[in-house]
Nucleic acid binder design. Structure first.
Lengths: 334, 334
DNA sequence: GTGAAAGCGCTAACAG
DNA sequence: CTGTTAGCGCTTTCAC
C-alpha cells in the first residue's frame, strides 16, 4: 500500500488534517509536531498525490506546450526557453506535437485541458486562415502563441518581427545591387511566411522594383527543398546572384546545390538564411542570417503566460521581439 | 461553473453514474440513452476531468520524460521517437530537463511521481559512478534509460552499441594507416564515453598499438570544445592526420579550426563524427560519421516501457541497437 | 438498463 | 495548536 496522509496520521496519532498542514508548511503547528510528522513521512517514503491535491486546489502548476515538431532545432530552442522559465516558476510541462495538423493540435489541447493545465504555449500549425479561431477564442484558460499568430488572435502572440527581419535582408541585397534574387520562402499557411513576404515586398517597393514571381518559391522548409529549388532554378536557366532563405535549413540545402554547380559563395552568389541556428556559424562558408531570439521567445512566452494565469483579467497584447541581420562569410559584406 | 457529470445528469434526468457509463462507452446502456447523453454532453461542452478519474482508476496514461538538454538536436530526435510511440499508445508526456545535474534529475523524478506517471524514460545526466543507483533501484514504477546506462542498472537501458561504433571508426582509421589520431572524446561521467573509449582501445589492441594519451581529450561536447582542442593540438605542434570525434557537434568545431589553419579535409586530415545529425550531411565537406538510430531509440524505449507498464512482472533487459559508420566527404574512403 | 452509496487522497471551513 | 466534517469529480460495487 502506498503511503498517504492517512498512513502517517495513523502512525503518529495525529489527524489527517494536521499531517496535511505540516507537510504543506501551514502555520499554527507546533514545532515538535512538525518535526515528528516530517520525519515519519520521510521514513515511510511519503510521496504526495498531486492529483488528489488538485481536486481541491485548482492550481495544478502544469502548463501544456504544443509545438509543430519537437525535433526541429528552432522549436527545441524555444522549448528550452519555456522550460527554463517554467522551472523557475515551479511549473511542469505537458508536451505534445501537432505534426503540422490542426486536428491533432485541437485534440491535444482538449486532452491537456482534461488534465487541468492552467494555460498553454502553442506553436500553431496553421495561422493564416486557421480553422481554429473559434476554438481558441473559447478556451477557458490563458494561451500564448509563440513565434506565430492566428488571424484575429494576434494579441495572444509573442513574435519576432518577421516583416522587419526579411525587409532588412532584401534592403541589404537590393542596395548591394542585386536584381535577380532567388527567394526560398516558407509554407503559405503560417504567419511567418506571410509577414516575411510582406517585408520582402516593402523592400522592393522602397527600391521601386517589382518582385518577379518566378524568383519566389514557397517551400515546406527542409534541406532537400532548398537543394531542389536551386537546382531547378539553375536547370531552367534562371539567372540569379543572391538567395534569401526562409530558414537556415533551406540555406543549407541551397548551398549544397551551389557547391555542386561550382558556384562560389559569396563571389558568384550571396546567400542569407533565417533563424541563426547553432550550426549556421559553422557551415563553410559560415552563413549570414537573421538572428531570431529563440530561447528568449520561449522564456518571454512563459513569463507572459504566468502573468495571465495570476491575473485572469489582464488584457492580452502582442509582444514583438527584435531581430537582427548578422553578416558572416556567405555575403560580401561582413 | 464547469460542466461535470453532475451537470449533465441534472440536465438529462439520469444519474451521474449512468452519464459516466455512457461517456466511457460502458456496456449495458440503451442506445437511446447513450445518444441523448452524448449529445447533451457535447452541447454543454463537457470536458472530462482526467485528474478526478485517475483517483479511482490508477491508469493516468502519463509518462515522465527527462532529458539532459531539450535543445540538443540528438535528444530532440530521441524525444520525437518517444512522442510518436507514446501518441500511438495514448500516452501523454510530462517533460523536464536535468541540466546535467543528478540533483535536478532526482527532483524531477519525485515531482513526476507525485503526478502519478506510470513510468519514466530518462536520459540520465550521470552514468559512471552515479549516486542515483539506490534511488532508481527503489522506484515504484518502471523506467527505461535511453542511450545511456547507470552502473548496475544496465538492464533498464536501450543503448546504441557505443563500443562497436567507436571501434569501427578506429578500425577504419588505423587500417588506413593513420598513426596520429586526435580523439575528441566526451565527458567522463556518462556511459557513452566509457564505452566508446573502450571501442577505441580495442581497435588499437587489434593493431597492436598503444594509444597515446596526449591524443585523447575528454570534452563536454560543444562546438567550441572541438574548435579549441584542435587549435591547442596545432599550437602545441602535435602532429596528426585524422580526428575522431565523440559527436558531430565537436566535429563541426574541429573542422572550423582545420579550415582556419589551412588544413584540407580529407586530404591533410580525415575527420569522423558521431551521431549523424541532420546537418552533418550538409557540411562542407560533408561529414563521415557513425549513424545512431536516434528516433528509433526513443520509439523502442517507449515500446519497452509500455510493455513493462502492462506486465509489471516482466524482467528488464538491455536492448542494444546497431550503429553504422557512414562514409562521406570528410574521409578518403567514400 | 439504471440508480444509490461509498470512497479515491487531499484541502478548506469551522469549531474548540 | 489541533480535530471534525464535508466535498472536489469521478468510478466502482452492489442493488433492483
Amino acid at each position: 500500500m502506498r503511503t498517504t496522509l492517512k498512513t502517517i496520521a495513523k502512525a503518529t496519532g495525529f489527524s489527517i488534517n494536521t499531517v496535511s498542514r505540516v507537510l504543506r508548511n501551514d502555520t499554527r503547528i507546533s514545532n515538535e509536531t512538525s518535526v515528528l510528522i516530517k520525519s515519519k513521512a520521510e521514513e515511510l517514503g511519503y510521496i504526495p498525490d498531486a492529483l488528489a491535491s488538485s481536486m481541491r486546489n485548482p492550481r495544478t502548476k502544469t502548463i501544456g506546450v504544443i509545438s509543430a515538431d519537437l525535433s526541429n532545432p528552432f522549436f527545441s530552442e524555444v522549448i528550452k526557453g519555456i522550460e527554463e522559465k517554467a522551472e523557475e516558476s515551479g511549473y511542469q510541462m505537458l508536451m505534445g506535437n501537432n505534426e503540422e495538423s490542426e486536428e491533432k493540435e485541437k485534440h491535444l489541447v482538449k486532452l491537456f485541458l482534461s488534465r487541468k493545465v492552467e494555460g498553454f504555449i502553442i506553436m500553431p500549425s496553421h495561422g493564416k486562415g486557421s480553422s481554429l479561431y473559434d476554438f481558441y477564442a473559447a478556451l477557458p484558460v490563458p494561451y500564448i502563441f509563440a513565434g506565430r499568430y492566428i488571424d484575429g488572435l494576434e494579441n495572444h502572440s509573442v513574435l519576432h518581427n518577421d516583416e522587419e527581419g526579411e525587409k532588412s535582408v532584401f534592403e541589404y541585397l537590393l542596395s548591394a545591387g542585386h536584381r535577380n534574387i532567388l527567394y526560398l520562402s516558407g509554407p503559405e499557411h503560417i504567419s511567418n511566411t506571410f509577414d516575411r513576404d510582406m517585408g520582402m515586398r516593402k523592400a522592393y517597393e522602397n527600391h521601386s522594383i517589382a518582385p518577379d514571381s518566378r524568383y519566389i518559391f514557397h517551400l515546406p522548409g527542409h534541406p532537400e527543398d532548398g537543394y531542389q529549388a536551386v537546382n531547378t532554378a539553375i536547370n531552367k536557366g534562371l539567372p540569379f546572384t543572391a538567395i534569401a532563405c526562409f530558414n537556415d535549413i533551406l540555406a543549407m540545402g541551397a548551398m549544397k546545390s551551389l557547391q555542386e554547380n561550382d558556384l562560389s559563395v559569396p563571389r558568384d552568389v550571396e546567400v542569407i538564411g533565417y533563424d541563426n541556428l547553432l550550426f549556421s556559424q559553422f557551415m563553410q562558408p559560415s552563413l549570414s542570417t537573421v538572428d531570431v531570439p529563440k530561447h528568449r521567445l520561449g522564456y518571454v512566452a512563459m513569463e507572459i503566460l504566468e502573468n495571465h494565469i495570476n491575473n485572469p483579467d489582464l488584457d492580452f497584447r502582442t509582444e514583438n521581439l527584435p531581430v537582427r541581420l548578422i553578416f558572416r562569410d556567405s555575403t560580401q559584406e561582413r
